[in-house]
Design a protein around this nucleic acid. Structure first.
Lengths: 242, 242
DNA sequence: TAGTGGTCTAGACCACGTG
DNA sequence: ACGTGGTCTAGACCACTAT
């Protein structure tokens, strides 16, 4: 620390590495305030612009957050929730297995016709009716994921009567329709969080989202549910066994 | 355009809105060069710092990319590479199936002992020897992923002799060691790109990374390879069939 | 009132790409 | 040689927080 040497790499990037290393090594602990910009200027004998460039970068790497008038603080990493998926597992059973408290909240539901991509995934004929559910899931009281589920209406007649006091989608399917969907395929993608995600998940900006699209089939074989889950990337790992 | 008015919101953010609006409206089309920083300074009568702040923000929103010595260009969204994984599939066979050109480049290799997490994944006894490979993969000439592979040295004696003119890891294993690893499990996570990623993948800033950790076993049953792939999130979807 | 981060100006030199 | 974006200095004023 206290000097920049390598002329080949920009000074602010050397500062980034220094700061990140000090956080990783535990010299700055979570929640702690790091030295002020002015102090860092003196320590490294660089201009404040250079320090700010570095801090911006460290922020976008997810290690720091700043508060005007107060300082820069080491950001707390939420605990990683390991979420296993297979042909059978569900969110609820999963969380129970790893011993996490969890809740689900039904943000919105509607009955209507499927969009073009939804039709394609579910192999629907034109204008077949579907239910669309938006479910917010919490793990250990932290907003964890937002899932949009599209259900074949024909498979779940009068579905709306079970949506009061919603607790678990698969509980409803098992209890009232006597079937458990089977996972056919899942697609994983890393994306930036859009405005809706950050609102729903009450996230600080700049956190990536793990988008999991899943197609589920009725035990009889036909596609019955198409779900898109948007999960906080910094809070989850999704494990698949083969 | 040509003036900043609202004193309540920072000037660079007004610039951001102007630029994004002009891209959305199609005034600047994909691949096109937007006016140079100096020209924007004159148009809006602001300092170059303010213009750069704005351009940085528009870049992180995914609308622009810059090239030193040339200019700022409206970014084309890269085509999504759909990457299916299962017990057997490999990167090479996968890309061939979807008809994509691809190459692999061996960035680095070393022989040594495994780190603690590597040991645990591979179920290694203390100080067992491993090979560690870092492989950069291209799809359609675009840097696509960086994979760190840890191989049990006992399973691939004298591995170094096959590393000249490296083309494909699994080709070496099949041709010279006569086995094909089988996927045991994969873990998916969305993370921000670190400095190494952005360098290796020549990425514009702030693109999320899909991190895929995979454990592969020898057909005889014991773990033989542990790989961590870091894939450009904006360029890939990873599909798993059940 | 003092210290902090947020915004901004006016300059400068460099590395890179194109003519 | 020139224009471009990338890095950097030396200042300034503001908004916010703490005391």
């Amino acid at each position: 620390m206290f000097s920049l040497k390598n002329d080949n790499v920009p000074g602010y990037l050397q500062l980034v590495e220094d700061i990140v290393d000090e956080i990783k090594s535990g010299k700055f602990t979570v929640g702690e305030k790091i030295p002020s910009e002015t102090e860092l200027c003196h320590r490294f004998t660089v201009n404040r612009y250079t320090v700010r460039q570095a801090i911006d970068k460290v922020k976008s790497l997810g290690w720091l957050e700043t508060q005007q008038g107060k300082g820069s603080y080491v950001k707390a990493k939420p605990p990683l929730v390991c979420y296993a998926i297979s042909g059978q597992t569900r969110f609820t059973t999963n969380m129970q297995q790893v011993g996490r408290t969890h809740q689900s909240e039904l943000l919105h539901w509607e009955r209507g016709v499927a969009t073009e991509p939804e039709k394609q995934m579910l192999c629907l004929a034109v204008d077949e009716q579907i239910y669309r559910l938006e479910i917010l899931r919490y793990v250990e009281d932290m907003p964890f994921s937002v899932t949009t589920s599209v259900l074949l209406a024909a498979a779940v007649p009068s579905f709306e009567q079970y949506l009061d006091h919603f607790k678990s989608l698969y509980q409803i399917l098992e209890k009232h329709y006597h079937f458990t969907p089977v996972r056919v395929q899942s697609t994983f993608q890393a994306t930036v969080a859009d405005l809706k995600d950050t609102t729903n998940l009450k996230m600080p900006v700049d956190i990536p989202i793990l988008k999991i699209e899943s197609l589920m089939a009725h035990p009889a074989g036909y596609p019955v549910e198409y779900g898109v889950a948007r999960v906080r990337g910094d809070a989850s790992r999704c494990c698949v066994e083969f």
